[in-house]
């Protein structure tokens, strides 16, 4: 494993900054730096799965990854970013303004190679539908922390059906209180209450829509 990937996995914030700057200064291909950062995030995900890491470490690694990307991105030439794993529209359901879970999921999904179109919080069904039409994203993630968000999620899935998009878009719902019962009620394809598990499920959904 590379020094940079290890530094990210070990949450060594200052070390990551220095390695990234040195690599940029020495003319290393920026995409290879991004790949190393992503490998570091994969190790973080593995440690989370093994219960060595918890949400706090996911948050820290996500912030470190974001800082690294902010330094790398200006050095990427147009078209050098590589093809995303998949496009995905993400937002918090109407009536719910909680953004923390959604934002953590967005960071981890980006680190895993997804292109995320974040429609924010309190998003109405038509906002999700319009963004899906605009981007052609085949995955929709809806977050919610309150029980009324179940109804909004359901209405969003119904709006997808009405727009003729349901068979083209996989829907995953996430949040602290979602369960299999909620997934069935909403009509979603998958659910999660765990951000790294959500990333894995999204990878699986991306494989299904390819």
């Amino acid at each position: 494993m590379s020094e940079l990937a290890d530094a990210i996995a070990d949450l060594k914030e200052d070390e990551v900054k220095k390695i990234v700057q040195d690599k940029i200064a020495s003319g290393t291909n920026p995409m290879s730096i991004v790949d190393e950062c992503r490998r570091g995030m994969e190790i973080v995900g593995q440690r989370y799965k093994n219960k060595e890491y918890f949400l706090g470490e996911l948050i820290m690694s996500g912030e470190i990854f974001k800082e690294a990307m902010a330094a790398i991105e200006p050095n990427l030439k147009a078209g050098q970013c590589g093809k995303p794993l998949a496009k995905m529209v993400l937002g918090t359901a109407r009536g719910d303004i909680h953004n923390i879970g959604k934002d953590i999921a967005a960071t981890l999904l980006k680190a895993a190679g997804f292109e995320i179109f974040d429609v924010g919080v309190d998003a109405a069904p038509e906002v999700f539908v319009n963004k899906l039409k605009e981007t052609g994203a085949p995955i929709l993630g809806i977050s919610g922390l309150l029980t009324p968000s179940f109804e909004s999620m359901k209405q969003t899935v119904q709006a997808l059906e009405a727009a003729g998009l349901r068979d083209k878009v996989k829907v995953i719902i996430g949040g602290g209180i979602v369960t299999e019962v909620v997934r069935k009620y909403v009509g979603a394809d998958a659910f999660t209450d765990d951000a790294p598990e959500g990333v894995e499920l999204c990878k699986k959904l991306a494989g299904e829509v390819r």
Binding site: T147, F150, V182, Y185
Partner: peptide, 13 residues
Amino acid sequence: VPASLSSIGTPQE
């Protein structure tokens, strides 16, 4: 008792 059970569960559940 889970919030989701109270709001969208059935009496039997």
